[in-house]
Design a protein around this nucleic acid. Structure first.
Length: 677
DNA sequence: CTGTCGTTTATTTTT
DNA sequence: TAAACGACAG
């Protein structure tokens, strides 16, 4: 590649970026912190930087880009490929000549997928086998309950969910069972549980989500050769959403970047809304302390929203003390004023939202242009009911995720046993699904013999002949079933294995039975059958892999994937979701409902200044989702936990500058629509 | 083992 | 209000 080609390409990469973005893209060496306000072109900045690095001659395989979600990394990968792959209109035939350089690709992935990648290679250093299973939250809780049961710790005085949260907290702080010094009674109990939990995980040859980050850190700390290997591999590191990194993720990145210090972090402290998930805002606030030589670039121009919206957002966030000073601005029009509406109760509120939508639709907007945001899931119901009545198509983001559904988890449990026959948690899920007359007591007996491999353990129990006849047949059949599945998975591909399992255990009949509710209706049966089909469709991606390999790859993908939005390709729907779920998205029209003290900010945060600041950031995120129209509603009375009580408007409403908004009391928005309330 | 009945508890949840 | 869980009887 000659100079003029490079020049053309660089020009191409930089085209359409603003001055600040160009600056962020072009500082290739040394630490860089980019503070990117909402709608300031963050993803563009990231992707163009990756492309720029590569055009500067940096090998793609030396680049690591880390995101938080699969969606974000997918998007990034796609856009980088586009930038690199398709020859630009003005470029010459350099494409062929340079294409050899693109044989390798940059490593783009989520924190957890990167951690998993490292761990698959290095886990033996810590005594794990390479085919370990990744536990999701359900698995973790199941294991924890078992551990607590074994330790005879009462689940009433020690809530397993809280214990799990505490363990995770310790892990995130990189406190391991061996270096943990409990200082009071509670933490002593906790330490005991933690220790056993971690040991059991290892015995099951399993890791939890935290381990995916924490264990690589552990390896890097104890083996400098391994660390060096990865430092040499990833000389250029980019981190997206840096404000959301937790301590362990921060350490992981710090270790990797230590040698070459080419660390590019982008994020927005004002959009940090995951501290309850252990995001540590200090990571971004202290970046310049950690890297005194760091360059800082501020992306403050907003391309998304009207001036009114930006002004309101800016004003609200300015009430927070802990933040990096910045001021958003936009060249967009002032636009319409923000509408703040007082309604009577949640049904009235819902009715009002819909009548506003109807009005806006008259001016040419479609369902997909609307989003209704709320603080808590429970608020979606009133809106949903009103939408059903009005007949508008809608989708709710969140709720039960695809891979968390019973029918999916059941089948996955069978598959897990194929790959990791020591996964007794998977066994616990399905030993009696479908009903086959095997209960807890039998499984206890089986688990008590020293054989860790479940199929083998079953065989041993059969040998020992200390089972009554009916149980003996049940266990014999079950053992045969597992062996058969094992055999099939040697010969067939994933899709056929799944099909085989479903058929062999009569799963559809079982589901039918299971879905039959007291009222005699089949509850969700269609959905469930649909999901089974969907599962097989996803599985067909692995058709050309051999059985076991396909199962492994598939389970891996599933473990790291949150297959939330099946409806996403459905083009024209009103979107309902929590504010948290809305981060990173934008809509022409945004409704934020339930703007009341105690709901938003949530009552559990109002006494803690830090948590209150997070609520305010949440409000900032919500407001900045809107491009053109922003409507905030609150009710005078709201039903909470059954009983209705009077409420006060959210303090955030009072923080909106008067000039940006119209206040309205909605008494009667449309005489015909009284049915709504 | 299975179903029922009472008790408990109610933010947000990128992986 | 409602759903989710655990205890207990069948």
């Amino acid at each position: 590649m000659n100079d003029s080609d490079t020049l053309i390409n660089v020009k191409e990469i930089i085209k359409g970026l603003n001055e600040k973005q160009i600056e962020a893209v072009k500082i290739t060496d040394g630490p860089v912190l980019v503070i990117s306000g909402p709608g300031s072109g963050k993803t563009r900045c990231l992707t163009h930087r990756v492309a720029y690095l590569i055009y500067q001659g940096i090998l793609p395989e030396n680049i690591l880009a880390v995101t938080f979600t699969n969606k974000a990394s997918g998007e990034m990968r796609e856009r980088v490929e586009k930038l690199l792959g398709s020859p630009s209109a003005s470029s010459t035939s350099s494409e062929q000549a340079s294409s050899g350089r693109f044989m390798t690709t940059p490593q783009i992935g989520t924190f957890h997928s990167i951690g998993l990648k490292i761990l698959r290679n290095e886990a033996p250093q810590l005594g794990y086998r390479r085919n370990f299973t990744v536990f999701d939250e359900d698995d973790q809780l199941g294991l924890l309950k078992r551990v607590m049961g074994d330790l005879e710790i009462d689940a009433k005085s020690f809530n397993p969910k809280i214990i799990l949260y505490k363990i995770s907290e310790l892990k995130t702080q990189l406190i391991f069972p061996e270096n943990h010094e409990p200082k009071d009674y509670y933490s002593e109990i906790l330490a005991k549980i933690y220790k056993k939990y971690q040991q059991e995980l290892k015995d099951l040859n399993a890791v939890d989500f935290d381990d995916l980050i924490v264990l690589p850190v552990k390896i890097f700390k104890q083996n400098s050769e391994t660390l060096t290997k990865y430092q040499e591999m990833w000389k250029y590191i980019l981190v997206d959403e840096y404000q959301d990194t937790s301590h362990d993720q921060y350490v992981l990145i710090s270790l990797l970047a230590q040698k070459y210090r080419n660390l590019f972090c982008i994020g927005d402290d004002a959009q940090s809304i995951y501290q309850f998930r252990r995001a540590d805002i200090r990571n971004i606030l202290n970046f310049q302390k950690d890297y005194p030589e760091a360059k800082v670039v501020m992306l403050e121009q907003n391309y998304r929203s009207t001036k009114n919206i930006i002004t309101a957002a800016q004003e609200i966030i300015s009430k927070n003390k802990n933040q990096i000073q910045k001021s958003l601005w936009t060249e967009n029009n002032h636009g319409e004023k923000i509408l703040v509406a007082e309604t009577i109760n949640e049904r009235h509120e819902a009715g009002f939202v819909i009548s506003r939508m109807e009005d806006l639709m008259k001016s040419g907007l479609g369902a997909k242009d609307f989003a209704v945001l709320y603080r808590t899931h429970a608020q979606s119901r009133a809106i949903e009911e009103a939408l059903i009545m009005s007949g508008f198509p809608y989708q709710i983001i969140g709720g039960l995720k695809f891979y968390e559904r019973k029918e999916i988890k059941d089948i996955l449990a069978y598959l897990k046993l194929v790959v990791n026959p020591t996964d007794s948690l998977a066994l616990e899920r399905i030993y009696n699904v479908p009903t086959r007359g095997i209960g807890k007591s039998i499984i206890e007996k089986v688990r008590n013999n020293s054989e860790k491999n479940i199929v083998a353990a079953l065989a041993v129990s059969l040998e020992s002949k200390n089972l009554p006849p009916r149980q003996l047949t049940a266990v014999t059949d079950f053992h045969k079933l597992l062996t058969d599945i094992g055999e099939i998975s040697e010969k067939k591909n994933l899709r056929e294995i799944i099909k085989y399992i479903i058929k062999k255990i009569n799963y559809e009949d079982y589901l039918r039975e299971f879905s039959l509710s007291k009222t005699g209706d089949y509850e969700n049966l269609e959905d469930r059958m649909e999901n089974l089909k969907e599962l097989q469709t996803v599985a067909s991606k692995y058709d050309d892999l051999s059985g076991k390999e396909g199962v492994e790859k598939f389970l891996e993908e599933v473990a790291l994937l949150q297959h939330t939005d099946k409806l996403r390709n459905d083009p024209d729907r009103i979107t309902l979701m929590t504010i948290h779920a809305s981060k990173g998205l934008e809509f022409p029209v945004v409704f934020i409902i339930g703007m009341e003290e105690g709901l938003f900010p949530h009552s559990r945060t109002t006494y803690n200044p830090h948590e209150l600041e997070e609520e305010r950031r949440l409000c900032y995120v919500a407001i900045t989702r809107a491009k053109d129209h922003l409507i905030l509603t609150y009710t005078k009375y709201r039903r909470i936990f059954g009983s209705s009580s009077a409420t006060l408007p959210s303090r955030f409403i009072g923080e909106i500058p008067v000039a940006c908004a119209d206040w309205q009391m909605i008494d009667d928005f449309d005489a015909d629509d009284k049915i709504y309330y």
